[in-house]
Design a protein around this nucleic acid. Structure first.
Lengths: 134, 134
DNA sequence: CAGAATCCCAACTGATACTG
DNA sequence: CAGTATCAGTTGGGATTCTG
């Protein structure tokens, strides 16, 4: 083990997502994953029931939404409020922490959406360049 | 077209990532995907060669890094500068667009990293609650 | 060094069906 | 309504090998 601690002079946060073993990687994936991101984005608008969310997040399956909500709840980003009525009613909403994270996420999403024209144009150029002219 | 435009009072961007068919979803996934996010984050620090990036993004395989860089280059977020020398030298850096996106992404990453203690605490509480006391 | 190509397993994902 | 359980198809992703 001659591994010298190659500190890359970034910052001194206790967690470093660039490191393979950091737990923040897992959370980041829950947040940025396909359904995690959209779910957080949807919940930024308010409180919703399970099937309301399913409709808002177009294309998500029951299974994936449940799984996503579990992960986000476990990470403390989403609060699950279940009423023991019949039929059952369960509401999901962001926690304070979740709202913070979702805010940054929304900023990112809006940034990407706002620049999609550039992205699409770039793609065309890229594909053209590679297309065999023959 | 009897579909009533349920405008959820969001904004009038031409792209809506919440919609299944929107191309912004794909780009968002390139950006937020496991390796996409870390790669953009790493490139925010400067220009790097292929293997330098591999070292910075701990755990990424050659294949995934190449694949990730292709997608980001195609989307116009990363610029690839290849010098026809021998041995070859290729540098990757963010485009102006890429820098913008990466900036928001970094804000998100730092937010998550800075709150990991809360996340970890939440996880413990959650797991405890579910653990059969038996 | 910078990558492309191949192989292959594991994980993600989506229907479907079922339960409280 | 709010999920869980199961199964099958697709993709993700790592290790290895090969090329310019």
């Amino acid at each position: 083990m001659s591994t010298t601690q190659e500190r890359t002079a970034e910052q001194d946060l206790p967690y470093d997502v660039f490191s393979r073993a950091c737990p923040s990687r897992g959370t980041l994936e829950h947040v940025t994953g396909r359904w995690g991101a959209l779910t957080l984005g949807a919940l930024y608008q308010g409180s919703f029931r399970f099937n309301e969310l399913r409709r808002r997040v177009d294309g998500v399956s029951e299974k994936m939404l449940a799984q996503t909500l579990h992960a986000l709840e476990r990470d403390g980003l989403v609060h699950r409020e279940a009423q023991p009525t019949n039929p059952p009613r369960v509401d999901y909403e962001l926690t304070a922490l979740g709202r913070e994270v979702a805010g940054r996420l929304l900023a990112l999403i809006e940034c990407v959406e706002g620049r999609m024209d550039e992205v699409l144009a770039s793609r065309e150029r890229y594909d053209e360049r590679r297309t065999p002219t023959a």
